[in-house]
């Protein structure tokens, strides 16, 4: 078992510097435990999508929870707890990447041409009778989408997961990654095109659509 999280907690001061057994701390602890328990599945799922590794995801969640407890007195509004702890999770992941020199903000300079499932499937004359592009999205399994997400390069997952899955703004992601907002925007555009390309190819392989495969490195 990775001891980092336990160790960091053991070094942590009591919440807000108050005696650990005060009634206020007991309320805080009860709130924290319930909130963490309710979010454990989502925290682990997001950690797994970031790391693509179950053991690393487990470490990431444990470290996130330890940090969240340590910094809980800084959380002004408990209504914001969910967004706050997911931000800690993302920041912790990016910090681990930098520490391991696996920086997810390495530039992806390739000319990742745009790709759109809509352009492949939309048929204007079917407007009132069917919507093949939306039907395809509904037919895809979660594992299809997870597989496509996992296939993205780190620098693309580092923007797609916070924005598309967690709902962060470009500015928030830029701050977390220490890159300009314009970089987040351009990587997001390339990441989404690549994600749709992967989904299209998976849909073809599964027989959900007919057509030609999307080339990974060419304009479609």
């Amino acid at each position: 078992m990775d001891q980092r999280a336990t160790t960091s907690w053991q070094r942590a001061p009591p919440a807000g510097g108050r005696p650990p057994c005060s009634a206020e701390d007991a309320v805080l602890r009860t709130f924290f435990c319930a909130a963490v328990e309710a979010l454990t599945d989502r925290l682990y799922g997001t950690a797994l999508r970031f790391t693509r590794n179950p053991a690393a995801a487990e470490d990431l969640v444990a470290e996130t929870v330890a940090k969240a407890w340590m910094h809980l007195p800084q959380l002004e509004d408990r209504v914001c707890f969910e967004k706050w702890i997911f931000r800690i999770l993302a920041n912790t992941f990016f910090s681990q990447c930098r520490h391991a020199r696996e920086d997810p903000v390495d530039p992806c300079d390739g000319d990742d041409a745009g790709f759109s499932i809509f352009d492949r499937l939309h048929q204007p004359f079917l407007l009132w009778w069917g919507n093949p592009e939306q039907e395809l999205i509904h037919k895809l399994l979660c594992e299809d989408i997870d597989h496509a997400l996992a296939a993205l390069p780190d620098c693309y997952r580092a923007v797609v997961i916070p924005v598309d899955l967690l709902g962060y703004s470009y500015a928030e992601v830029a701050e977390m990654l220490a890159v300009p907002v314009g970089t987040v925007r351009s990587r997001l555009n390339r990441a989404r095109a690549q994600l749709q390309r992967a989904l299209w190819n998976q849909a073809l392989a599964a027989g959900l659509v007919h057509g030609t495969p999307a080339k990974e490195d060419a304009h479609d």
């Binding site: 599945d41 682990y44 797994l48 179950p54 487990e58 989408i145 598309d164």
Partner: peptide, 12 residues
């Protein structure tokens, strides 16, 4: 919307 509502992974 599909991306926002992906199933959570079951923690070990």
């Amino acid at each position: 919307q599909r991306l926002r509502t992906l199933d959570d992974a079951s923690p070990p």
